[in-house]
C-alpha cells in the first residue's frame, strides 16, 4: 500500500517538499507576487508541455515544439509590428503552429519517418524560416494593448496567463481522460497494433496528437509575444528542455509510466519553483541546466525500470 502511494505520488511529494524548503529558506519565495510570477512562467512551459504530452500519449515524440513556437511567435510579432489587426496576427500564430504540427503528423504517418527524426527536420525548417522572416533581428515595439493584454491582462484579479494555463490544462485533461477520442489516443500509444485491430484509426490519432502539439506551441508563442511585446528567432528555445523535463517528470506521478496531463502540469510548476527558488537562493544560472538534465535522466530511468511499462521508452530502443 505504502509502496503504491509512493510510486504514484512520490515525486509529487518531493515537489511539495521542495516548495516547503524554499518557503522556509527564502523570505521572498512565498510572497503573492513571487507565486504569481512562478505561475505565469509555468503557463508558457505548461502549455508547451501539454502539447508534448499529447504527442507522447500516442507514443510519438515532438522535438520541434520550441522551434515551432519561435516561428509562430515571429510570424505573430511581424504582423503585429506591421500594424495588422492583432486578432489576425494571433490567428496567424496559431495557424503556423498548427500547420507545423500537421506537417509533423504527415511526416510520421504518411511518409513513415520516425517522429524523433521527422520533428527534428521540421524544427530545423522552422528555425530557418524564423531567421529568414526576421533576418536575425527581433521585433520589439509598443504594441497595441489589445494584443499585449492577452497575456498581461487580468480577469477577476487573476492574471490571464494563469487562466490560459488552467483552460488548456482542463481541456487537455478532459480530452485524454473523458472522451472517446482520448481513449483512442491512449490506446494508440499503449498498443498500436491492438488498437488498429480494434478498429481505431491509429494513424489519424498520431496525426491529430502531433497537430495538437503544434497548436499548443502556436498558443505558447502568441502568449510569449504578447507578454514580452517582442518576437525573435529562438525565443522559445529556453523552454525546450524544460518542456521535455516536465513531461517526463510528470510521467513519474499520478499515472506512473504514462504521460498524463496532471503530472505534466504539476511537474511544470515544480520545475519553475525549482528555477525560481534557486535564483532566490543565489545559485548561478547554470545549476538549473545541470539539475534539469539530471531530472530528465532520472525520470526516464524511473519510467524504464521502476515500472517497466513506458511504451515510448521501448520504442526508442527498437523500432520495427
Amino acid at each position: 500500500m505504502t509502496r503504491r502511494i509512493l510510486a504514484r505520488y512520490g515525486t509529487a511529494l518531493a515537489g511539495v517538499g521542495l516548495f516547503a524548503i524554499f518557503a522556509v529558506t527564502s523570505p521572498v519565495f512565498l510572497t503573492p507576487d513571487n507565486i504569481a510570477l512562478i505561475l505565469k512562467e509555468t503557463a508558457f512551459l505548461g502549455i508547451l508541455a501539454i502539447g508534448f504530452t499529447l504527442a507522447l500519449v500516442t507514443a510519438e515524440i515532438d522535438l520541434s515544439v520550441a522551434e515551432v513556437a519561435s516561428l509562430a511567435a515571429v510570424v505573430t510579432g511581424a504582423l503585429v509590428h506591421g500594424g495588422t489587426d492583432p486578432w489576425i496576427a494571433i490567428a496567424a500564430g496559431l495557424a503556423v503552429g498548427t500547420l507545423c504540427g500537421a506537417a509533423n503528423g504527415v511526416a510520421v504517418t504518411v511518409l513513415n519517418v520516425p517522429s524523433l527524426i521527422a520533428t527534428l527536420g521540421v524544427a530545423a525548417i522552422a528555425k530557418g524560416l524564423s531567421f529568414m522572416l526576421t533576418q536575425g533581428v527581433a521585433f520589439v515595439g509598443r504594441w497595441p494593448a489589445s494584443f499585449t493584454g492577452l497575456a498581461r491582462g487580468t480577469l477577476l484579479g487573476v492574471p490571464n496567463l494563469i487562466w490560459w494555463l488552467a483552460g488548456i490544462g482542463f481541456a487537455a485533461w478532459l480530452l485524454v481522460k473523458w472522451t472517446r477520442l482520448g481513449a483512442h489516443l491512449v490506446a494508440t500509444g499503449e498498443a498500436d497494433e491492438a488498437a488498429r485491430l480494434a478498429g481505431i484509426r491509429t494513424r489519424s490519432m498520431k496525426r491529430l496528437a502531433l497537430t495538437l502539439a503544434g497548436a499548443c506551441a502556436g498558443l505558447t508563442a502568441v502568449l510569449l509575444a504578447s507578454s514580452l511585446s517582442s518576437a525573435a528567432p529562438a525565443m522559445a528555445n529556453d523552454h525546450f528542455l524544460y518542456a521535455i523535463a516536465a513531461v517526463l517528470l510528470g510521467m513519474s506521478m499520478f499515472e506512473p509510466g504514462r504521460p498524463n496531463i496532471p503530472g505534466t502540469l504539476f511537474a511544470a510548476f515544480t520545475l519553475k519553483v525549482l528555477g525560481n527558488g534557486l535564483v532566490l537562493l543565489g545559485a548561478e544560472y547554470y545549476w538549473q541546466d545541470i539539475i534539469l538534465g539530471t531530472i530528465i535522466l532520472l525520470s526516464v530511468a524511473l519510467s524504464a525500470t521502476g515500472t517497466g511499462k513506458a511504451p515510448f521508452v521501448k520504442k526508442l530502443n527498437v523500432r520495427r
Binding site: 483512442h184 490506446a187 499503449e190 498498443a191 491492438a194 480494434a198 478498429g199 481505431i200 509510466g257 511504451p311
Partner: peptide
C-alpha cells in the same frame, strides 16, 4: 492493450 484494464480492452474502439 497490455497496460489497460479488462473493461478498456473489451470496449477498445
Amino acid at each position: 492493450a497490455d497496460n489497460l484494464d479488462a473493461a478498456a480492452n473489451i470496449f477498445l474502439g
